[in-house]
Nucleic acid binder design. Structure first.
Ligand SMILES: [Mn+2]
Ligand SMILES: [Mn+2]
Ligand SMILES: [Zn+2]
Ligand SMILES: [Zn+2]
Lengths: 152, 152
DNA sequence: GCCTTATTGCAAATGATTTGCATAAGGAGG
DNA sequence: CCTCCTTATGCAAATCATTTGCAATAAGGC
């Protein structure tokens, strides 16, 4: 069983947040962008551009617009990009503190995804930074395995 | 400064290893495969197919053959695949115990690579396995940062 | 409403990786 | 060595995700 979720899954101010931040940069609040954010809010796990497109009401916009919008939302820090190792990028809405980050556990059989709260220990990352002389360390970490369903 | 390297960088039996394993599966010991392995032995860090192709003596083989060979070597456990987040797969020769694995620290400015010995704590991975019910856990982990050279 | 500027759609370009298929080259057996 | 069967390779073309160019369109400040 998994522990209580630490992420803030209900945060109704996201659309306003978008509006606000877009205005600051004199970017426009368009139908596609709002619709995409609506889709992202409903998703519990990272989704691909293609999937986002499919979840959008018919005719909202072109796939290219989804790509461009995700780049924008990523740059604005509203979504985060993940890589599950199949060639397609996935995005997840950033909820709560944008400093936080988390990882995933993906079933290699059925691609079921579980949100993971454990993270690479900060002390170890600091050690790596010191030993290497590198600054501004970050990491990409995802877990793979076989889910209960697929173990039969 | 980095610590003494724990990897077995001089292991002259690799080609025979290849020969042996290939024979077992009635696969052929071809020029391209031997040449590619020679290239891989000289590389300290993961390299892309394109780079391998460039490091090969002229006319050894086609890029497609490099792709196919790397798939084979990977399946045979002689090389391991890495993903540094730019769309190209990278491969590194497996030296020493094939159970071992390690990670990398990549400079986001100049793509300098440092081999990292720290790994995600086994205890934590076990905990994740128990909490999720997933089996056969593994993980993909790479670090990013700015190298000393690029910090100016 | 008007005007400037950002945004979109659509077609086409990219780049990495894969596939189809006819030809070439291993290597077991003689 | 020579033969034969099977695996490997080259080359061209196909895929797939993602990006770009450009003309047409929509936002939103005034
Ligand atoms: Mn998540
Ligand atoms: Mn390495
Ligand atoms: Zn599963
Ligand atoms: Zn650097």
């Amino acid at each position: 069983m998994s522990r209580p979720c630490h992420h803030n899954h209900q945060e109704p101010i996201k659309l306003d947040d978008l509006t606000e931040r877009l205005r600051e940069k004199s970017q426009k609040i368009t139908g596609p962008r709002q619709a995409i954010l609506e889709v992202m809010r409903r998703e519990a796990h990272p989704v691909t551009n293609k999937k986002i497109m499919a979840l959008l009401p018919d005719g909202v916009c072109d796939l290219v617009t989804v790509y461009r919008s995700m780049h924008l939302l990523e740059k604005m820090g509203l979504v985060r990009r993940f890589d599950f190792g199949d060639g397609a990028a996935r995005f997840e809405l950033v909820r709560g503190n944008s400093e936080d980050h988390h990882h995933h556990l993906i079933c290699t059989e059925c691609t079921t995804v579980v949100e993971i709260e454990q993270c690479f220990p900060n002390a170890l990352e600091k050690q790596i930074s010191q030993e290497s002389g590198f600054k501004k360390l970050s990491h990409k970490l995802e877990f793979f395995g076989i889910c209960p369903e697929c173990q039969s």
